[in-house]
Design a protein around this nucleic acid. Structure first.
Lengths: 179, 179
DNA sequence: AGTATATATGCAAAAAAATGCATTAGTCAA
DNA sequence: TTGACTAATGCATTTTTTTGCATATATACT
């Protein structure tokens, strides 16, 4: 149930915001290591409030629905810090494409090549987005504060991940293309 | 529900076997891109049989429980091939360590460094196992059959994945260590 | 005028996964 | 002879995730 912690971390690092804003944050950057739907996020925020880890304030708006502004509480920060200190295991990997690759000989070579090229493009696109964030937000790595270093490392993980996928796709395409 | 397809692929590529054997196959190699518990695997096999995608034969044994030997059926192969041809999206990533990294400034630097070193070791160990499999099963890459190429690419993905994690851990450790 | 998109949040049901517990019988070591 | 491990399979419960559907107003496009 690290979704809770992902939300807490976002409220801490990027500040208080609404559930709607959190959905956007997840879509934009956090999704490179944690994905969640708006249904999950809204529900989890209500649960977090019950626990006392976040507090909310209703912001009345005209013309559009009211919003709930969520902030992390001192208790929430403590809880997050405590969780960070408990060792965690690598994530479970469940990657459709690798199952497809394992049994890829069942389908025509061109079909697999197409799928691999499609995937390469997806990862190239994500990579470009992340590299742009890196370029804009971390122009000089030498002069980062402690807090910034951690943000930087998160982005770096995303960049490596996408670049690694691209590299594997290239390798696979090259191997399968040689007839 | 690609667990079903992972099971079908394993039965196809490595041959008929029992649920127990599949659990071992998952633990050993498949887990580098699909993880599943024995409870999931046994249940899914029963479901697959209802669908007609696998067939089972009870093997009576003395001294130990009887086993059910599962084989993929022609229908199962067709189904698998059809699934392979439908495009898939990248897996959802949910990585605790990255959430921890994002908010890592909440805890002492040494604690984060310890966790990063622990993680590096986990990935180094997995990497060693996969590289050994690569060395033993794919000594000369130039002379692979079509089917073998796909197996090889699966292993390559695992190797890249683990190596990539190690590289990021190194980068993170280096950045945080410089005081 | 109609369609799509953004803002902002939610309920309900179904599917998938994780967790805990259970059985039977052999081997192997301390 | 107690404890641990391997072989082999399963049930039940809870948690988590996914999917489908719903609502309200505003703005911008076509």
């Amino acid at each position: 149930m690290a979704l809770a912690h992902a939300l807490l971390a976002s409220l801490l690092v990027d500040g208080a915001c609404s559930g709607y804003d959190l959905v956007k944050r997840f879509d934009e950057s956090i999704s490179c290591y944690w994905m969640a739907s708006h249904q999950q996020i809204y529900k989890e925020l209500r649960d977090l409030e019950k626990q006392g880890w976040v507090s909310s304030e209703t912001i009345a708006q005209t013309g559009r629905p009211n919003k709930n502004l969520y902030s992390i509480t001192a208790l929430g920060q403590e809880h997050l810090a405590h969780w960070i200190l408990t060792p965690s295991v690598p994530t479970v990997i469940r990657e459709d494409l690798m199952i497809k690759t394992l049994a890829g000989f069942l389908v025509p070579n061109l079909a697999m090549l197409d799928e691999l090229k499609r995937r390469r493009q997806i990862h190239l696109d994500k990579l470009a987005v992340l590299k742009e964030i890196e370029r804009q937000e971390f122009p000089q790595v030498a002069a980062l504060s402690r807090e910034q270093k951690f943000c930087y490392l998160s982005i770096r993980r995303g960049i490596r991940y996408e670049a690694d996928w691209v590299a594997w796709c290239e390798e696979a395409i090259a191997l399968l293309a040689e007839e």
